[in-house]
Structures are given as structure tokens and as C-alpha cells.
């Protein structure tokens, strides 16, 4: 365990202890706020059900993320290649991001039904944006002199993309991916709230109606754990793809 993590872990532990103490002292009735121990117990009891629902949510998140990244990549390449597309669509892109996903999710359910499609569409909408914006910024930060040098060596646009623009944009792509990974889980859960046959969002609405706050907290923790795990996965890929950013300083 790296030393730099100690303060943040200590803070989390302190928070959990305080929470446990408040619950045990009887200041707040246990049906309103379950203690961390209650939540843990609920988590263990519900494990099979949580696992089953997680798989559905994860499947939606992965498919949506993959498609979102694909769409985002394509959009960025097109907008970078054709200035007119950039001028036409960049403002539009920003506008789409001001619409809260909770607001369009019900519409998507009306259009696409209760199956997986509306969930994936919502995730694509919310994940392609960070990828596109990250890549575009990255492409535009490519060194003009380096591009000139490659041109003088006879490189065409495709090769300039391959050898300069794309690798230059990798750090921004990964920042975008990390955000997109977190969005994909949240997006899946939100769209499940609004209708579906399974998944952590559906589970959540079910336990909410039963006023089972301990299970509610258990699923909330699970969702944030999944998001964190996905972000860690992206980080791992980042280190694999960009070893030069993690060189030992000599």
C-alpha cells in the first residue's frame, strides 16, 4: 500500500466509524439510517441477487461504452479532418451535453422500450462526448513542426495521423476514457430506474419501494465500487499504452 494513500484511507475509516457511532447511539432510528455494519450484512445476504443484477448492468455499460468510444473516435477524426464539420458540430456537441440524461431517459424508454436498447443509447450519448472532446484537443495540440518534418519525409495524412496526431492525443483520450467509464455505469443505472427487467437500477427502485435502506446503501456502495474498478482498469491500460509517461526519473 503506497504511503500517499494513508491520509485518504484514514479519512474514510474515520467517517465510517462516526457513522457507526451515530447509529449505535440511537440519535437516528435504524430504519432511517442503517449502520455500516447493517449495510455490510445486507450486502452479504443479498450477494447472489446483487451479482445477478450487476452482470446485467455491466453488460449494458460495456456495450454502451464500447459503442460510445467508437462513435466518439469517429466524430473526433471527422471533425479534425474537415474544418467545416468542426465549425458546424462542435457547438452542437456542447449543447447536447447541457441536457441532463435523466431528462431524456424517459423519452428513450418510450421510443425503444424496456429492453437493453434505450440503456445503451443513453450510455452512448453520455460517453462519446468526453472521448470526442479529449481526442480533438489532443489532435489539435500536435506539434506543427513535427508534422512539417514528417511531411518533408513524404508522409501522407494517414501516416501523420498514425505517427503524430494519434499518439499525441493518447493522454487526452485516456482522460476522456476515465470519465466515460464512470459515466457508463451511472448511465446504465439511471436508465434502469426508468424501466427495465433487471440490473442494479431496477434492484434499487425495488428496495427503495420496500424501504429497505440497508440494501439501498449496499447497492449504492456496489455501484461506486464498480465505477472505481472500471476507472482503475482504464488507468492500467493507460500505463500499458504509454510507458514513456511513467519512466523512472534518473
Amino acid at each position: 500500500m503506497p504511503k500517499r494513500n494513508i491520509p485518504s484511507l484514514a479519512a474514510i475509516a474515520l467517517l465510517l466509524l462516526t457513522w457507526q457511532f451515530v447509529c449505535m447511539s440511537g440519535l437516528i432510528p435504524s430504519y432511517m439510517l442503517p449502520s455500516p455494519v447493517d449495510v455490510l450484512r445486507a450486502f452479504v445476504d443479498e450477494l447472489p441477487l446483487l451479482w445477478e443484477n450487476s452482470l446485467i448492468t455491466l453488460q449494458e455499460a460495456f456495450i454502451g461504452l464500447a459503442l460510445g468510444v467508437g462513435v466518439g473516435f469517429l466524430a473526433a477524426v471527422l471533425m479534425d479532418s474537415f474544418e467545416i464539420l468542426y465549425k458546424a458540430f462542435y457547438p452542437l456537441l456542447i449543447i447536447t451535453q447541457t441536457i441532463p440524461s435523466v431528462a431524456i431517459a424517459p423519452l428513450l424508454v418510450l421510443w425503444f422500450g424496456y429492453e437493453m436498447t434505450p440503456k445503451i443509447v443513453l450510455i452512448v450519448i453520455s460517453t462519446f462526448f468526453p472521448v470526442t472532446v479529449g481526442l480533438l484537443d489532443g489532435f489539435r495540440s500536435a506539434d506543427r513542426d513535427a508534422i512539417g518534418l514528417l511531411r518533408s519525409m513524404g508522409a501522407d495524412r494517414l501516416r501523420i495521423f498514425r505517427y503524430i496526431k494519434f499518439p499525441t492525443a493518447l493522454p487526452q483520450l485516456f482522460s476522456g476514457l476515465r470519465i466515460a467509464a464512470a459515466y457508463s455505469v451511472v448511465g446504465a443505472v439511471i436508465s434502469e430506474w426508468l424501466g427495465g427487467f433487471g440490473g442494479l437500477g431496477v434492484y434499487m427502485t425495488r428496495v427503495k419501494k420496500a424501504f429497505a435502506f440497508d440494501k439501498m446503501f449496499a447497492v449504492i456502495f456496489l455501484i461506486s465500487a464498480i465505477s472505481l474498478a472500471l476507472m482503475a482498469l482504464v488507468e492500467l491500460a493507460e500505463k500499458k499504452c504509454m510507458p514513456y509517461r511513467y519512466l523512472d526519473k534518473k
Partner: peptide, 15 residues
């Protein structure tokens, strides 16, 4: 594509 040049900036690609 026939003659290459080198600048004050070394333009080594960091990646």
C-alpha cells in the same frame, strides 16, 4: 519527400 531537415528543436517524438 526528397530532402529532410533538422531544426533547433530536436523533434524527437516523446512516445
Amino acid at each position: 519527400g526528397r530532402i529532410s531537415y533538422m531544426l533547433q528543436k530536436d523533434l524527437m517524438l516523446p512516445y
